[in-house]
């Protein structure tokens, strides 16, 4: 991992992108890194654009907002078009397979994977899409060991849902092919 990693998570309210950003920040704290997490959303409980940000670093993090993301997760077309333009030059974009990569975007920096479909069909619960994404992000960026990530998830899910969340994490990680993104960011 770089000394400082700026991550952005964007989707529709209710998709759980804020929780995904919280879990990765928690895993960072567990592993002794500095982490700051924040979010921006509209007044709606469901729908609307939801954006969350996590900054991980070896040094103390002061300003809590992301300026040039090294990583973007986009779960809706609108959020991809809006935030895809603000990436660092070597930044990685992870999108759901259902989205269309805009012409202006460097396809070489985009990972398109079936996050929503995997949650729905393989894990069996559409609402686990954010945990599927966490598993995929962790594998793609080479961030944390399995134990740390699992503990990060456990601290933010209701008791009794450990099994389905473990399944979602594993299914997400399996979406990242070993030959791709091996070096992490």
């Amino acid at each position: 991992m770089k000394d400082r990693l700026e991550m952005r998570f964007a989707g529709s309210g209710g998709q759980g992108v804020i929780l995904a950003s919280v879990i990765l920040a928690e895993a960072a704290v567990i592993s002794g890194l500095n982490a700051v997490q924040s979010q921006a959303y509209g007044p709606e409980a469901r729908g609307g654009v939801s954006k969350a940000e996590t900054i991980l670093g070896r040094e103390k993090i002061w300003y809590s907002k992301v300026s040039t993301p090294d990583f973007l997760l986009a779960l809706t077309q609108a959020s991809l078009e809006k935030y895809g333009k603000e990436m660092a030059a070597d930044g990685l974009v992870m999108i759901d397979e259902s989205l269309t990569v805009p012409d202006w975007m460097d396809r070489g920096r985009v990972i398109a994977i079936p996050i929503l479909r995997t949650a729905r069909e393989e894990v069996g619960k559409a609402f686990t899409a954010n945990i599927v994404a966490v598993g995929a992000i962790n594998r793609a960026l080479g961030l944390f060991d399995d134990g740390t990530l699992t503990e990060g998830v456990r601290r933010h899910i209701p008791a009794g849902t450990e099994e389905i969340n473990a399944k979602a994490l594993a299914a997400g990680a399996a979406l990242i092919r070993p030959e791709g993104n091996k070096e992490g960011i």
Binding site: A28, V29, N34, A35, V36, S38
Partner: peptide
């Protein structure tokens, strides 16, 4: 809101 909604270790 900056501090209220921010999470840190």
């Amino acid at each position: 809101e900056i501090v209220g909604h921010m999470r840190e270790g």
